[in-house]
Write a protein that binds this DNA or RNA. Structure first.
Length: 299
DNA sequence: AGCCAGGCTAAAT
DNA sequence: ATTTAGCATGGC
């Protein structure tokens, strides 16, 4: 058995690399399309922490190059997150064939849905209400830096930080959370963290439930309404029909499908539930990203 | 300077 | 049953 003094840092491990086959995968669009908020473009690629593993990603023709701290014998934690085994063409086939939808598909070729951790998604989207994406990223970065577990990272001496677990946030004060610039969302995040932490809400348990049951459970949290619940259902649990309607998606649906006059919320909801088919949530991401590109919100 | 942001809640109509 | 004000904070 190897004994090492606790005051001696572990030896730096080498970077493990892999090339993941990935057809039709626009990495930048996927990471920056407002579904995840922890990715940062560094000099050597897209850097982030998935669970407690630091990783750097680079796009290449037909694949994604990744490096993480080695040794890595099993990369499923990454391929599952990136959903590289999903055949995008099969998803796109199920979209409605109308001109507006097909235009969005052309404009956003390679846009994907990630499969994120439920707690991170829940927390992130509780923080998202009436916030711009850049601000959500900033708040999440503050949370990681101040309260996240340190993870060794690719740069010498540097540390990436995991998204703070619910148990960690549950023990923080509202003051500490407000200091991360989240404003009135602080008590909502704290409440959710406590519910998860003390077992009143089992995020893992929701995997076994139907979409509607899982939605009901999420809606029980203060600060979680239909939009945020649907974001978690879609981006973390992968329920394919979950259809978050924010100001942008609402605007897109209005302009593209109800150009005459502003539809009521009920009309929009009914349309969203019935029109887009078995992968409605995926279609929603294409509408969201394409309208934001057209309005110059990207870059 | 003023409006808006991947909303939600409770009060007011 | 539907509409509206208030909520923190920051980008543009």
């Amino acid at each position: 058995m190897i004994v090492r003094s606790t005051s001696t840092p572990a030896p730096p491990s080498v970077l493990a690399e892999i090339e993941i086959p990935a057809l039709d995968y626009d990495l930048e669009a996927t990471l920056m399309s407002g579904q995840a908020f922890g990715w940062r473009k560094g000099d050597r690629g897209w850097e982030g922490v998935i669970g407690d593993r630091w990783v750097r990603l680079n796009p290449a023709p037909g694949r994604i190059r990744a490096c993480a701290l080695g040794p890595q014998s099993d990369w499923r934690w990454l391929t599952h997150y990136l959903q590289t085994d999903v055949r995008l063409a099969d998803i796109l086939k199920t979209f409605p064939k109308d001109p507006a939808m097909q235009e969005s598909v052309r404009e956003c070729a390679g846009l994907r849905l990630l499969r994120q951790d439920p707690w991170e998604a829940l927390a992130s989207f509780i923080l998202s209400s009436t916030k711009q994406i850049a601000q959500i990223q900033q708040i999440c970065a503050l949370l990681r830096d101040r309260f996240g577990a340190a993870t060794a990272c690719g740069e010498a001496g540097a540390t990436g930080r995991a998204f703070p677990a619910a148990d960690r946030i549950a023990k923080l004060s509202e003051r500490e959370l407000r200091d991360c610039k989240m404003g009135f969302r602080a008590p909502n995040l704290l409440g959710a963290a406590r519910a998860v932490s003390d077992g009143k809400l089992s995020l893992e348990g929701l995997r076994e439930r139907t979409v509607d049951e899982a939605r009901e459970a999420l809606l029980g949290l203060r600060g979680v309404g239909p939009k945020i619940a649907n974001c978690v259902l879609l981006f973390a649990y992968g329920f394919p029909t979950a259809f978050p309607i924010d100001v942008w998606v609402r605007r897109a649906l209005h302009e593209l499908y109800f150009p005459k006059r502003r539809p009521t919320d009920a009309r929009i909801d009914a349309f969203a539930r019935t029109y887009f088919g078995p992968n409605a949530g995926y279609a929603q991401q294409y509408l969201f990203h394409s309208i934001r590109r057209r309005e110059g919100r990207i870059r």
